[in-house]
Design a protein around this nucleic acid. Structure first.
Length: 160
DNA sequence: GCCAACGTTGGC
DNA sequence: GCCAACGTTGGC
């Protein structure tokens, strides 16, 4: 009987290195971080419903000197309610998120590796012809969590 | 620091 | 349900 091949899923997540960059992730003893604080419904839906354990994620540095993909992380815990939404002292507190009916969800990601070099946003824009449909290079895109097609994933890694 | 693009809010 | 006002994102 042919074995059923698990669909491999790929994503990209943005973070500001001045807040939490890849070196901050590496410095953690378990190299694992709950991706809390996301307050966007599209991103929420992906973390809550679609991201699966083992999925791989491009780790993207935004709002910095050289925006780009700096590494790869892996989903190690699937969607669960974002506890920071319930904490009045937290920067991302949302009084409308009820623990009985949570509004915000997150996943945990674990460090896998750094890229040999940063694949910059500028690199990706130069290769736009090969990356048609990639949300990151669509005009005005502001999503902080987005899917990446397998063909785009492979192509981007070939630029490393 | 600027500002375009976008999501959310709230008055009506 | 419309849409103007507002706040945020994020490249430059």
């Amino acid at each position: 009987m042919p074995s059923k091949r698990e669909p491999r899923r790929y994503w990209l997540m943005k973070t500001e290195p001045s807040e939490f960059g890849i070196d901050d992730l590496i410095a953690l003893s378990n190299k694992t971080e709950p991706w809390d604080g996301v307050r966007n419904y599209q991103a929420r839906n992906m973390m809550r419903d679609e991201m699966k354990k083992g999925d791989r994620v491009f780790f993207y540095h935004s709002n910095c000197e050289t925006p780009g993909i700096v590494g790869i992380v892996r989903v190690v815990k699937e969607g669960y309610p974002d506890p920071t939404a319930f904490d009045p002292k937290d920067k991302h507190y949302d009084p409308k998120s009820d623990p009985e009916n949570p509004r915000w969800y997150l996943v945990d990601v674990k460090y896998e590796r750094k890229l040999k070099r940063t694949i910059t946003l500028s690199d990706l824009k130069d290769k736009a012809a090969y990356l048609e449909g990639l949300a990151l290079v669509r005009r005005g895109n502001r999503l902080s969590v987005m899917p990446v097609d397998e063909r785009h994933w492979e192509y981007i890694l070939s630029l490393e």
